[in-house]
């Protein structure tokens, strides 16, 4: 990929919490191109969530540089930081915690449209309905409160709110870790569709290799605050080199292969007749 298409460049980023023995993030550098899908994996405590919050400047780093869309993110403040940060949206692990419990979800999706002056007041309900539609939600749900939605619906709302900012990059912090398998694939498919339609890039932070496999082309493996391995997702997971990567791959719960069981069966072979209608 060419220099010009780089969307996010992180260089020598470091953060140590006051009083902590080891740095949460130490000397992390990587780059991410426009439209690229990158996974950041690691065990809990490896520093991946801290790194994500450093990148959106919810935490201030001790050292290092972050360039986003060609601008130095760390040099900005106030209004200009607010504007630029809109292009870089965070999607949280627990969508119930990430939504204000006391406001209707439609209002929360409308917030970015309002504060960034993207859509005039009169057109906002229609714009919110369109966003709900894009993430596969019934626009009527805009009138609900977060606790009145299912887990999958809440995560869709959170994604709609991120999309409302018209971002170039999504920082997905374990977006499917708390969801059932069937809902998980729906959200992953939704994200993929949105990426293709909007040309989004993302950094998917996860400990779930299944999600990383499905939703990234390149993978960064983090351990003890550092990036210890990097490469194409399929290749890295097929032949992991770093110890941390090997541990992750070995620990992944996997199903046994689906051959028919040779052992004795109480019934004849399973047979479900397809619907004839």
């Amino acid at each position: 990929m060419s220099e010009a298409s780089l969307l996010l460049e992180v260089e020598g980023l470091a953060k140590r919490w006051p009083g902590a023995a080891a740095a949460a993030v130490s000397d992390v550098s990587f780059a991410l191109a426009e439209g690229e899908r990158v996974a950041l994996v690691g065990a809990s405590g490896s520093g991946k969530t801290t790194l994500a919050r450093l990148i959106v400047r919810l935490i201030e780093p001790d050292r290092g540089a972050i360039r986003f869309a060609g601008r130095d993110l760390l040099a900005l403040s106030g209004e200009r930081l607010r504007r630029l940060r809109a292009g870089l949206q965070l999607v949280f692990q627990d969508p119930l915690a990430a939504l204000d419990p006391r406001r209707r979800v439609g209002r929360q999706v409308a917030d970015p449209l309002r504060v960034h002056g993207l859509v005039p007041r009169a057109d906002r309900p229609a714009a919110v309905a369109a966003l709900f539609d894009r993430v596969g939600l019934d626009p009527a749900l805009a009138e609900r409160f977060p606790h009145e939605l299912s887990g999958g619906q809440r995560q869709r709302v959170a994604i709609a709110r991120a999309l409302a900012c018209r971002p170039l990059l999504l920082l997905l912090d374990e977006p499917v870790a708390q969801l059932d398998v069937s809902v998980k694939v729906q959200i992953l498919n939704l994200l993929d569709r949105l990426r293709r339609e909007e040309g989004l890039a993302w950094l998917l932070i996860t400990h779930d290799l299944g999600a990383a496999r499905a939703a990234s082309d390149r993978i960064l493996v983090m351990a003890e605050g550092r990036i210890v391995e990097e490469g194409p997702t399929a290749a890295v997971l097929a032949a992991p080199r770093a110890a941390a990567t090997r541990a992750l791959v070995a620990a992944e719960p996997r199903l046994p292969p689906p051959e028919p069981d040779p052992g004795p069966q109480p019934f004849t072979a399973p047979s479900v007749s397809p619907r004839t209608m």
Binding site: V181, S182, Q186, R193, R213, L255, P260
Partner: peptide, 29 residues
């Protein structure tokens, strides 16, 4: 796990297996 009989069990397994080997294209839903 190898020879599921109920359509729901089959669907659930198909989704989980798809996630294990996922490559290009949308996942089974």
């Amino acid at each position: 796990l190898r020879a599921p009989r109920h359509p729901y069990t089959r669907a659930l397994l198909a989704v989980a297996r798809d996630l294990e080997r996922a490559g290009a294209g949308p996942l089974a839903e």
